[in-house]
Design a protein around this nucleic acid. Sequence first.
DNA 1: ACATATTGTTATGTTTACGCAACAATTAAT
DNA 2: ATTAATTGTTGCGTAAACATAACAATATGT
Lengths: 85, 85
Amino acid sequence: MISNRIQIFRTDRGLSRKELAALVDVNPQTIGFLERGSYTPSVELALQLARVFGVSVEAVFSLEPFPPLAAQIGAPASPPKGDTP
Amino acid sequence: MISNRIQIFRTDRGLSRKELAALVDVNPQTIGFLERGSYTPSVELALQLARVFGVSVEAVFSLEPFPPLAAQIGAPASPPKGDTP
DNA sequence: ACATATTGTTATGTTTACGCAACAATTAAT
DNA sequence: ATTAATTGTTGCGTAAACATAACAATATGT
């Protein structure tokens, strides 16, 4: 329960776990645990992560699972399944 | 470190601690601890509180202390201190 | 006046976030 | 080919989140 997009934002910003960890002042392993969803961070850490990524907390954390990226970015209407046969 | 406006939003919405606690599914005392700043909630609880209040997480929780309400709402330019003597 | 609800506080217990160390498995750089 | 960096995982320890109970103080309702 509760999903996050830490890994997506981190890789998008070209950061390693170690680097991100330094930016939000936690242990690098902690980032790993968070990305795997092994635990739920405090609002404090959530606010720091959102600040580093330059987005809202809601953009990084959600009570419901996040839809796959394709639905958010520019994915074709529906095709890629039996396209022009 | 980390301040919140839980009490302000709660009273503004006309909720008791018990009622708010029920809405976010925690113990009523937990609301008390949060309002006093005795501890920092998880993002999960923060998201639920923000959802109940109908605002963003950033509107309820901040890494820096919140300014007094007067600065946010319609407070007179500065007067109420030696007004028309 | 009495009862009920709300708040403030304190104490005890369980769970979990997070730090830190260690190591295997990939991957990237040279 | 070898080194270095990144990742995945496991284990142990500590601090803090949260549950629950208990009680005083004040307010609110009737």
